[in-house]
Computed example of a mutant assay.
Amino acid sequence: MTEAKPQARTIALSHLPANLRGRVPQFAPAPPAATKVKLPTDGTAGWYSRIPTDQKVAFITIDDGWVKHPLALKLMQAADVPVTLFLEVDAVKSDPQYFAKMQAAGATIENHTITHPNLKGRSYESQKREICGGADQLATLYGRRPVLFRPPFGNHDHNTLRASHDCGMKAAFFWKETTNKGKVRFQEGPGVKPGDIILMHFRDRFPDDFLAVLQAIHKAGLTPAKLEDYIP
């Protein structure tokens, strides 16, 4: 997403139900990425649950794609902040245009496998089929081949990171906060910390979850930033 001009923000907010408009915080534009992570040089993708930065930023990531809430796009447009979508091919193929509209509004689409298996413990070839296949199919659907990856359930092993690298994924990600039913759960005490990666899903209560994440970031004095900007 890009910085909304006041008029554009007003228009985007007007498309939301009245009970949601006052719950969308306004953020200053994210600062340019001061530094980028250092990726491994051993033939594996990087693994991160937080981006090591002192900048006052956090990262919103949204997984899967099974539930296609009618207000999700409108909320993203009203908030006008960067989001990264880790999409599962099987979840999005019933309505790929739903996510194409988010991409057109500024969201970045990344890889979350084809069928959402638990990759940990599987053979290298099995994991590579899921990771490369997910990236290839998302490229066909959305015109850009993903370069970032989230393993289903956050479960991974050395084969996951090796296959990710060999499939063109620069980095793979865990998280520091999760959100469900409008509640943010913290791994390391209360409050979002600079560089934290926050996990959401496309679920029935998407508005509550998205607004809870925005409010938690705002309360911490941080700004949502684009995850991809911090990866070489």
Rank of each mutant, 00 (worst) to 15 (best):
L199I: 11
A34I: 03
M169D: 07
S14L: 05
Q77N: 04
G168C: 04
A30G: 03
L141T: 11
H69C: 03
N19D: 15
Q7G: 09
F86K: 00
M169W: 02
S126N: 11
K219P: 03
R122P: 02
A225T: 05
H218I: 07
P40G: 12
Y230F: 08
T140M: 14
R145P: 11
H69M: 01
Q77A: 10
K101P: 10
V92L: 01
L141M: 14
V67K: 14
P207I: 11
G195N: 06
T178I: 10
I62Q: 07
T223W: 11
K101I: 06
T10S: 12
V67W: 14
I62A: 06
P82S: 05
G221E: 06
K170T: 12
A104K: 12
P190F: 12
T44S: 10
V184N: 06
D63S: 08
I114G: 02
L222N: 07
F206N: 10
N111A: 01
Q127I: 08
A58D: 04
D42N: 12
L39H: 00
N19R: 15
F202G: 09
E188F: 14
H158T: 13
R203A: 15
E130V: 03
P146R: 04
T44I: 08
A45E: 04
G189F: 06
K193P: 10
D54V: 15
P6I: 10
G46F: 03
S123T: 10
G189I: 06
P17A: 01
P96T: 03
R145V: 08
V83F: 06
D63I: 02
P207S: 07
F206V: 10
V147G: 14
A45H: 02
T115E: 09
T2Y: 13
I11W: 15
T61E: 05
W175K: 00
N180E: 15
A79V: 12
P70Y: 13
G195I: 05
P40N: 12
K170N: 10
I217T: 02
P29E: 04
D196S: 00
I131A: 09
Q127D: 09
T160S: 00
A79P: 10
T84K: 13
W175E: 03
N111H: 00
K56T: 11
T179Y: 15
V37A: 04
D64P: 01
Q137C: 07
L75R: 08
L85V: 01
A28F: 13
G154V: 08
V147L: 15
L119F: 08
N155D: 15
A91C: 14
A45M: 04
F149V: 09
A135H: 05
Y230K: 03
Q215F: 12
T44K: 07
L16D: 00
A28L: 15
E228W: 12
P31E: 06
H116L: 06
K38G: 15
C167Y: 00
F86D: 01
P96A: 07
F27L: 03
A105F: 02
A78H: 00
V67R: 13
T140I: 15
N19Y: 14
I198C: 11
L148K: 04
P70M: 10
P25M: 00
A220I: 07
Q137I: 13
L75T: 05
